[in-house]
């Protein structure tokens, strides 16, 4: 399974579908840099991420820390939430998440 990277027309948002893992981070990083060259504010939709690993988590942190760019992750899928939660990087990423009654963080407003 690979990753589908959908860049919207206004280049304001990217949707990732499929794997956010060691097998796809190289490609995603390059596409991300391309989009960042055009805009300062990017929403990254993680709703379609079916698999994520340490490399994927690391890429999220890298994107978030790119100086001068405002990256917001949205629609975190369950696997993403699980990993973010386990690594305690929710605060570090700073995206709005809601802790549901079950204790699992969820993307706010979705």
């Amino acid at each position: 399974m690979a990753c589908e990277i959908v860049v919207d027309a206004g280049a304001q948002s990217i949707a990732l579908r499929g794997e956010l893992t060691i097998y796809t981070v190289g490609e995603i990083r390059i596409r991300l840099l391309d989009v960042m060259a055009m805009t300062d504010k990017i929403d990254i939709d993680l709703g379609g991420v079916a698999e994520i690993d340490t490399a994927g988590l690391q890429l999220m942190l890298l994107a978030k820390r790119k100086p001068g760019k405002e990256v917001t992750f949205t629609h975190h899928s369950a696997v993403v939430l699980h990993l973010v939660d386990m690594a305690s990087v929710g605060l570090m990423l700073g995206d709005p998440l809601v802790i549901s009654a079950g204790g699992m963080a969820q993307t706010a407003g979705n």
């Binding site: 981070v25 190289g26 995603i28 840099l33 490399a55 690391q58 942190l61 790119k66």
Partner: peptide, 18 residues
């Protein structure tokens, strides 16, 4: 508790994400 240590994280531009 897990604390993720990101002190050695390079920039996105320089990073080898693998």
């Amino acid at each position: 508790h897990v604390e993720t240590i990101t002190d050695h994280l390079p920039t996105l531009d320089e990073a080898d994400p693998e």
